[in-house]
C-alpha cells in the first residue's frame, strides 16, 4: 500500500526553492565577478550579486526563526546510525533495485546521510559563505573598524566555499533523481506531498 503524506510545508517549499534560485544565481554572478566568464557585465554582476546576497541573508534569518520555532531543526540532527547502510544503498543497492533502507515520515524527513550533509551545509558551509560575503561587502569599512584584514584572504575563502557549494549542488541535483521515478522527489518538493510505502513502514 502506498499512501500520500504532506512532507514539506508551504514555508519549507517556498524557502527551499527561493534559496535554490538564490544560490544558483549567486554562483553564476559570483563566478562572473571572479572573471570565469562574461554574462551580465561586471558592474551588473556585482550589483545583482550583492542584492541576491542580502536577500539570502534575510531569507536565512527567516529560515532560522522558522526552524527554531517549529522545532524542525531536529531533522538536521546528524546521527551515525545506519549511515553505512545508506551509503551502501547508493553504491550497490540502488543498482539491484532494492528499496531504500530508510523510511521517510513527517517525523523523520531526512535519512541519516541527508541529515549529515544538510547539517554540514546549513551549519558550516552557508553560514561561512554568508559571513565571508558580508565581510567582502563591508571591506571598505574594516579599516575604520580597526581590522587590518586583507581583501585577498577574504576572497580566497569566499571563492573556495563557492566551489564547495557548486559541487554540493551538482551532487544534490543528481540525488533528486533517485526516488521512485526520476522526478518524484522533485515533485514532492513542489507539491509538498510524497508517496510513502506503507508496507515497509509497517
Amino acid at each position: 500500500m502506498k499512501s500520500k503524506v504532506l512532507l514539506y510545508t508551504r514555508f519549507e517549499r517556498f524557502w527551499h526553492w527561493f534559496q535554490a534560485f538564490l544560490i544558483i544565481f549567486l554562483l553564476a554572478t559570483g563566478f562572473e565577478i571572479h572573471g570565469t566568464f562574461h554574462m551580465l557585465g561586471y558592474g551588473a554582476a556585482c550589483y545583482w550579486h550583492n542584492l541576491a546576497g542580502m536577500t539570502l541573508l534575510i531569507l536565512t534569518a527567516f529560515a532560522i526563526f522558522w526552524h527554531l520555532t517549529t522545532g524542525q531543526w531536529r531533522h538536521y540532527q546528524p546521527c551515525s546510525e545506519n549511515l553505512k547502510k545508506i551509503a551502501g544503498y547508493y553504491c550497490v543497492g540502488i543498482m539491484r533495485g532494492e528499496p531504500h533502507p530508510f523510511r521517510k515520515s513527517p517525523e523523520r524527513k531526512l535519512n541519516p546521510l541527508q541529515a549529515l550533509s544538510y547539517f554540514f551545509l546549513k551549519v558550516f558551509l552557508l553560514p561561512l559563505q554568508l559571513l565571508s560575503g558580508l565581510i567582502y561587502y563591508f571591506y571598505n569599512d574594516w579599516l575604520n573598524w580597526g581590522f587590518a584584514l586583507r581583501l585577498d584572504s577574504v576572497a580566497i575563502v569566499h571563492t573556495a566555499l563557492a566551489f564547495v557549494l557548486l559541487i554540493f549542488l551538482i551532487v544534490h541535483i543528481y540525488l533528486t533523481t533517485t526516488g521512485g521515478t526520476l522526478i518524484s522527489y522533485t515533485m514532492a518538493m513542489i507539491t509538498g506531498w510524497e508517496e510513502i510505502d506503507e508496507e515497509i513502514c509497517g
Binding site: I33, H34, G35, L151, D152, I156, T159, A160, F163, L166
Partner: peptide, 17 residues
C-alpha cells in the same frame, strides 16, 4: 601587490575547484 577582483585569483584554487 594587491588583490583586484576579476583580475587576480589563485590558480591552484581554481584548478582544484
Amino acid at each position: 601587490g594587491f588583490y583586484l577582483p576579476g583580475r587576480d585569483r589563485w590558480q591552484l584554487l581554481d584548478t582544484l575547484g
